[in-house]
Computed example of a mutant assay.
Amino acid sequence: MTFVRACIFNLYFFVLTLVMGILAMPIRVCMPSRALAYAQAWTGLTIKGLTRICGIRVVVSGREHLPQGPCLLACQHQSAFDTLVWMNLVERPTYVMKSELTRIPLVGPMLLLTGMIPVERTGGAKALRALLAATDRARDDGRQIIIFPEGTRMPPGEIGRLHPGIAAMAAHSGLPVIPVATDSGLRWGRNAFLKRPGTIHIVLGPPLTCTTRRALILPAIATAWEELSRENGLPLLTPSPVDNSVGKQTESLTES
């Protein structure tokens, strides 16, 4: 049954994306200001299809830690689900994402119109300056910025090397950093065809208190993830390596 449900969902997701991608073309030309709302409709229908077809329930806790206005959400990344769900969990989401995604037909142009932040992961200092400028624009526009500090999807219970792009963004912008733990990989694994029924938990922690000191931000994120996992019954994490090297500040910031 799980296999059959996965087949139905993947067909649903493909058709939905194709149809809404085609219908997005007049939005891009005539109503670009509606691009974000249109994208949120697509992700909302995707998540609704996932829950109804695959029997997956989404439980979010810690919403009280979200500040009014802009912030940085430092999210664990275990599944493609993570790249979808935040579109409908906050009012004005902005993802930090690899720039290659903007070149996907139909989808890519909409990503730019919705205000996503593409990053050239090997662009060095120039890419870092562009990232910080985009962070300023998102902050001034009242956006909630979602970033995956591990830079790639990791299995539940494992933590990847944390990259310092978010530390630079936090120290530069002064935005609060909200750590977010999840167990989404238990239901929708990395590159997994099957979507297993059950509950996906998303847990937001209180804002970090050390965001003005760049060197302390990554260890604080790793510690917060570990505490959130332990307190909420999520898979416990192995010790986290962190990467504070200036030369790698824009490498592997996110992967979808």
Rank of each mutant, 00 (worst) to 15 (best):
I117Y: 10
P93F: 11
Y95K: 08
L73H: 05
T114D: 07
L112T: 13
L132E: 08
G124H: 04
D136N: 12
T83P: 00
P109E: 13
N88P: 00
V107G: 04
A134D: 13
L72C: 03
G69E: 13
A127C: 06
V107Y: 15
R129P: 00
V119E: 11
G115N: 03
R137G: 01
H65V: 05
E120W: 00
T94V: 14
V119H: 06
P93L: 09
F81V: 01
Q68R: 14
Q78E: 13
A133W: 01
V90F: 11
T135A: 11
I104S: 06
G124N: 05
C71D: 09
M110T: 10
R92N: 15
L128N: 04
A80H: 11
H77R: 07
L113R: 13
A138I: 09
T135Y: 00
L106S: 11
Q78K: 02
I104K: 02
C71G: 07
L106A: 12
G108R: 07
A80S: 14
R137F: 02
T94S: 15
F81H: 02
L113P: 00
T83R: 00
R137H: 09
H65F: 14
Y95Q: 11
D140Q: 15
R139I: 02
R103E: 13
A127Q: 03
T94P: 00
I104T: 13
L66K: 08
M116P: 01
A133Y: 03
L132W: 03
A74I: 05
Y95N: 12
R121Q: 12
V107M: 15
L101R: 07
P118A: 12
T94W: 01
T102K: 08
S79W: 08
T122M: 01
R129G: 10
L111Y: 08
I104M: 10
R103A: 14
L73I: 15
L132K: 02
R137Q: 14
A138L: 10
F81I: 05
A80K: 04
P70A: 15
G123C: 04
G124Y: 06
R121G: 10
L66C: 11
D82L: 03
I104W: 09
L89G: 08
M110Q: 10
G69L: 12
S79C: 08
A134E: 10
G123Y: 01
A74R: 04
K126I: 09
T122G: 11
R139D: 06
R121K: 06
L128S: 09
T122I: 00
Q76D: 03
T135G: 13
H65Y: 14
L132C: 07
Q78P: 02
D82P: 03
R121P: 05
A74M: 08
D136I: 04
T94N: 12
G115Q: 11
F81S: 01
C71S: 15
E91Y: 00
P93W: 04
P118G: 11
L113G: 02
C71K: 06
L106C: 13
